[in-house]
């Protein structure tokens, strides 16, 4: 990789970690943390800050979705700008198309432009072509980890249905990732298990609480891992509250 691309990767990765840390703080303490617009405007390099917003995709809306921070018009414009400035249509993958679809769908819901049950990726991506329901659990779980940023409140459709149907395979994926010390994959799969609320028996075979505690202890230095773990915890709490109500 040329030197410039390596430096670019390091800059963008550092910015994504920084933004992930801010989002994590915002999720921990409601109302805290700078708004997205303040973050981009205060950054030394706005392009890098926008790239960080682009990389994290749907997760930048997590504080608004979990009710810990309102999203205001300037924040929505930042997200729309990041999506427009870094179009991935040409070089994108099915996974990035899923993430983009969820980001734009959740953004439109936040603007009040659309209503309904939730955001589904099915109108933009044929999920069954890259997440084949008959796929063996190992590659399937790896692909679900790849689109785990779609595991957020307000998302429905094929991705969530596959998570519910194959909850036991999610558990296998989590167990394998923990054995390999691949904590990022484990955290991302735990996000999906939180949405498999109709299949608690399959999920509860794995002690998700112990997994989350282990990830918090071992992965606290990794900002994006910490963000995934925090979102997984909030999803579990929210799913159980909705199930009990």
């Amino acid at each position: 990789m040329p030197h410039q691309d390596t430096a670019l990767m390091e800059d963008y990765a550092r910015a994504a970690d920084d933004l992930a840390g801010r989002l994590h703080r915002c999720l921990e303490t409601p109302g805290s943390g700078a708004a997205l617009a303040d973050y981009v405007e205060g950054a030394t390099d706005r392009r890098t800050a926008l790239a960080a917003v682009r990389v994290l995709g749907p997760d930048v809306l997590a504080p608004a979705l979990f009710g810990t921070r309102r999203i205001d018009p300037a924040d929505r414009e930042v997200l729309a700008t990041a999506l427009a400035h870094y179009p991935l249509d040409a070089g994108g993958t099915a996974e990035t198309m899923c993430l983009d679809r969820v980001t734009t769908g959740l953004l439109h819901r936040a603007e009040g432009a659309v209503s309904g049950d939730g955001v589904a990726v099915d109108d933009a991506v044929d999920v069954d072509t890259f997440l084949r329901p008959e796929e063996r659990w190992r590659p399937w779980a790896q692909q679900m980890a790849g689109v785990a940023s779609c595991a957020l409140p307000g998302v429905c459709g094929s991705l969530v249905e596959q998570a519910r149907t194959r909850a036991a395979d999610l558990g296998r994926g989590v167990a394998r990732a923990m054995l390999r010390r691949d904590y990022r994959t484990a955290a991302r799969l735990v996000r999906w298990t939180a949405l498999a609320d109709n299949n608690r028996a399959a999920v509860d075979q794995l002690n998700i609480e112990a997994v989350l505690r282990h990830l918090e202890l071992c992965g606290s230095v990794n900002a994006r891992l910490s963000l995934d773990v925090r979102i997984a915890r909030l999803l579990r709490t929210r799913t159980r509250r909705e199930g009990a109500g």
Binding site: M9, Y86, L88, T96, D182, R184
Partner: peptide, 17 residues
């Protein structure tokens, strides 16, 4: 630039460690 979009795609991808 193409390098920027490639870098972003790479960072969005979650490959197995």
């Amino acid at each position: 630039t193409a390098a920027e979009t490639t870098t972003i795609t790479a960072l969005m991808a979650q490959t197995e460690a």
